Computed example of a mutant assay.
Amino acid sequence: MLEKLDGIDRAILRILEKDAKTVAKSIAEQLGLTKTPVYERIKRLEKEGFIQNYTVVLNTAKIEESITVFSFVSLDAQKGSLMDDFLLSVAEFNEVTECYVVGGEFDFLLKVTVKNLDAYYDFAKMRIATLPNIGVVKSAFVLNEAKNSHHFPLL
């Protein structure tokens, strides 16, 4: 059962989601509250797992050139242990930044970030294709990033 969040909890989460460096004093001012109860709420939200961690969003274009590829992967057999083995293997690949188990035509959706097309070819050939039980891999190459957000729509 999902735990309930009240309006103040949701407001705090919205503020922190936009900027995790926002201090309790600033959040309190924005919400018309005092610092101590806001600080205590943040600590409770962390303790209860609503806030998993704080992170930095990098401007990857400033760091180095790269391409993003979405790889749709189907296994030959969808037995639980084989799917688990695939997930464990993929978790070790630095190139895979996100991995989802999906329903429909494919079993998994991978978000892969590599330097260029040659690097993706090497990744697909030397890493993905060599895993046991791989059936089909289809790739979609990102041409332009229209939106990239980790925003969760808190209602």
Results as ranks from 00 to 15, higher is better:
residue 3 E to M: 10
residue 109 L to H: 01
residue 47 K to C: 02
residue 104 G to M: 04
residue 28 A to F: 12
residue 12 I to T: 04
residue 44 R to V: 04
residue 81 S to Q: 12
residue 22 T to N: 08
residue 13 L to W: 03
residue 121 Y to H: 11
residue 91 A to M: 02
residue 127 R to K: 14
residue 31 L to F: 13
residue 76 D to G: 08
residue 71 S to E: 15
residue 126 M to K: 12
residue 108 F to I: 08
residue 15 I to C: 03
residue 61 A to M: 10
residue 62 K to M: 11
residue 48 E to N: 06
residue 107 D to E: 06
residue 35 K to Q: 15
residue 26 S to C: 02
residue 37 P to N: 03
residue 103 G to R: 02
residue 41 R to W: 06
residue 117 L to R: 08
residue 52 Q to S: 10
residue 50 F to M: 09
residue 12 I to D: 03
residue 89 S to C: 03
residue 50 F to S: 04
residue 99 C to T: 13
residue 112 V to C: 00
residue 48 E to S: 12
residue 121 Y to G: 00
residue 25 K to M: 13
residue 68 T to F: 00
residue 75 L to M: 14
residue 64 E to S: 14
residue 117 L to M: 10
residue 112 V to D: 00
residue 3 E to F: 01
residue 66 S to W: 01
residue 118 D to I: 10
residue 118 D to W: 09
residue 13 L to V: 10
residue 105 E to D: 09
residue 58 L to W: 09
residue 99 C to M: 14
residue 17 E to P: 10
residue 90 V to A: 15
residue 8 I to H: 03
residue 11 A to Q: 07
residue 114 V to W: 00
residue 50 F to W: 15
residue 104 G to C: 02
residue 35 K to F: 02
residue 85 D to T: 13
residue 31 L to H: 09
residue 113 T to N: 01
residue 97 T to I: 14
residue 11 A to K: 08
residue 15 I to F: 03
residue 118 D to Y: 10
residue 87 L to H: 01
residue 12 I to R: 03
residue 46 E to Y: 02
residue 117 L to D: 13
residue 29 E to V: 11
residue 81 S to D: 14
residue 36 T to I: 11
residue 67 I to T: 01
residue 127 R to D: 10
residue 24 A to Q: 14
residue 32 G to N: 10
residue 101 V to S: 11
residue 33 L to D: 10
residue 25 K to C: 01
residue 2 L to E: 12
residue 127 R to I: 00
residue 84 D to G: 10
residue 86 F to S: 03
residue 4 K to W: 03
residue 55 T to Y: 11
residue 82 L to G: 05
residue 110 L to C: 06
residue 46 E to Q: 12
residue 124 A to E: 11
residue 40 E to S: 11
residue 103 G to S: 12
residue 11 A to I: 03
residue 89 S to E: 15
residue 88 L to H: 09
residue 53 N to F: 12
residue 6 D to K: 04
residue 34 T to V: 12
residue 15 I to R: 01
residue 123 F to P: 07
residue 88 L to Q: 07
residue 100 Y to R: 14
residue 125 K to Q: 11
residue 26 S to R: 13
residue 119 A to W: 02
residue 98 E to Y: 06
residue 5 L to K: 03
residue 53 N to A: 12
